[in-house]
Amino acid sequence: MENFVNALVSGLISGSLYAAMALGLTIIYGVSRVFNFGHGVIAVIGAYFTWYLLSNFGVPFLLATLLSMAFMALFGWLLYRFTINPLLKKPNWEFSTVLFMLGAGILLENVVLQIFGPRVKSIPLLAEGALKVAFIQINWHEILLIVIVLVAILALSLFFKYTRTGQAMRAVAQSVPGAQVVGINIEQIFGMTFALAFVVTGFSGILLGTKYYLNPHIGWEWMVKGFVIVTFGGLGSTSGAVVAALILGLVEAVATLYLGAIWVWPIWFVLFLIVLLLRPQGILGGRA
């Protein structure tokens, strides 16, 4: 019982980190239908940028995070403007953007490797100590992580619901010609979407870097998890990604407890295949 409850708590923690990580992927796909195969490396870059500011310049954590988010926004926008935008005008853009982002991911991974070397890094904990309630013990750091992710998800959903740009992003996601006839500048919204998604993804990389370790290659593992999560939840659906991430986080924790960590991937993929067979559009996806 004790172990089971602790596993649920730890599943909740990793689930919310996965949710944060998958959001950027599903936002880009939802609006632009580009499947970002460089997603994991983007998260790694956000984390390394923050780590660099923290450890080399002693910048306070909050400021380092803000600077890193600003950097990611600019990075996302520039990448869209100068690479994705011209590719989207080609007839076979779906395939070329996938290959391009995959190649960009490999390139960026090696840039990170050249600059920072292969040694493992980690971002310091946000808080020390632990909360103890009866037999449950949770680190304050991890409680803080869950709170941060919840606040971030809430902020994002308010942004999509109430701001002009957020509404325009949803409009483009639902109908590109519809968005054009009401006067939405599609290219501008795509650019803002890449900026937003890179901010969210970089931010999730920072959070992951405080709980797990960082190296230049870890992004690929994160990305595969992100792929499973967004497909499981429904491609392009943000609420689907959050629900899927929490389910898979809990499954991971419980499977690790009773069967051992090597069973996590097989069980994930069996669940994944079952969902794809029963609901090809994902648990909360709108269309197949």
């Binding site: 509404q167 639902q174 109908s175 939405i184």
Partner: peptide, 19 residues
């Protein structure tokens, strides 16, 4: 038509006033 089908009537109309 090209409506935004996952939005309400009101949200669609408000988006009409995007310019």
């Amino acid at each position: 038509r090209h409506l935004f089908t996952d939005m309400t009537v009101l949200e669609n109309l408000y988006l009409g006033a995007y310019p």
